[in-house]
Amino acid sequence: MVTFTLAPEFGYTLAVSVLSSVLVIGLGARVGGYRKVANVPLPIMYADEAEALKDKKKMIFNCKQRVHQNTLEGFTSYMVTLLIAGLQYPTASAALGLIWCLGRVAYSYGYTSGDPKKRSLGAFGHIGDLGLLVLNGKMAYDMIRAGCLN
């Protein structure tokens, strides 16, 4: 049986995971809140392209929806890497998670500004994703190496 002890600093990792979940919920709420403004009824996911090109509110709605969808597309792998890296590197994983969160906020505000090209404002958030992947890779390498030495 394998046992391990979590460092108290793992609480930082957990706090960032909670913050990340609240962020995703907030992005979804922004979509729902703007749905009436843009007059895009449920269950329609996006405003029609022709309508969005004519109506700035519909375009902004589509951008808000895309931000939320894009965030959800990578959220599972982000959370897995955040929590696994936090087992060995709790402070570093929390810091990288915060970078990811700040990047998502900047991405959202840039994308929904009315000029979707401004989404690149949040590109720095990929530092969080990549950093977490590196930490997970290092943990895998260290575990495999330790097993090979036995």
Rank of each mutant, 00 (worst) to 15 (best):
N62P: 01
V16F: 02
V31T: 08
R119V: 06
P90A: 09
P8R: 03
D129N: 13
L98T: 04
L149W: 01
G114V: 12
R104G: 13
M59N: 11
K56N: 09
C63T: 02
L149T: 10
A50R: 15
R66C: 08
A95E: 00
D129C: 08
A146G: 00
T76V: 15
L19C: 08
K138D: 15
K118E: 02
R119D: 00
N62I: 03
R119E: 03
M1S: 04
Y107E: 05
K56E: 08
M139Q: 02
E73G: 15
R35Q: 11
L14Q: 03
Y141K: 06
A29T: 10
T112I: 12
D129I: 03
K57R: 13
Y12S: 05
L72A: 06
V18F: 07
E9N: 03
G74M: 12
P41I: 06
L121T: 05
K138E: 14
A50P: 07
S17L: 11
V18Q: 06
I99G: 02
C63W: 01
L83A: 07
A15E: 01
A52N: 06
L133G: 14
A85N: 01
K58R: 10
D48H: 03
G74T: 10
E51H: 12
T13Q: 07
G26C: 03
A29Y: 09
M139Y: 01
L42S: 03
I60N: 10
M45T: 10
V105Q: 15
G97A: 05
L19N: 09
F124I: 01
M79Q: 10
G33C: 12
A106M: 13
M1I: 15
G137T: 04
I25P: 13
M1T: 07
Y89E: 13
L83N: 05
I25L: 15
Y107N: 12
A47K: 05
H68Y: 06
L98H: 05
A94Y: 00
G125L: 05
L27K: 00
A123I: 11
S21R: 06
L14A: 11
P90T: 05
T81Y: 04
L149R: 14
Q65N: 02
I127C: 06
D129S: 07
F75L: 14
R104C: 14
A92C: 15
K36I: 14
G11K: 09
F4T: 08
D129A: 05
Y141D: 13
Y34S: 14
T112G: 15
A146Q: 07
V24G: 13
L19M: 07
G122T: 11
F61V: 02
K56A: 15
R30Q: 04
K118Y: 05
N136D: 03
P43G: 05
F124A: 12
A15C: 09
P116G: 14
S77C: 08
L96S: 07
I144C: 01
L87N: 00
A106F: 09
G97V: 06
S93C: 11
M1F: 10
A95P: 01
G33K: 02
S20Q: 02
G137M: 07
L121G: 06
G28L: 13
A7N: 09
V105H: 11
G147I: 08
A85K: 05
L72Y: 13
L132A: 15
Y12E: 05
L87A: 01
L82R: 09
C101A: 13
F10A: 01
R35D: 11
S20A: 14
I25W: 03
A7S: 11
K58L: 06
A15S: 14
K117N: 09
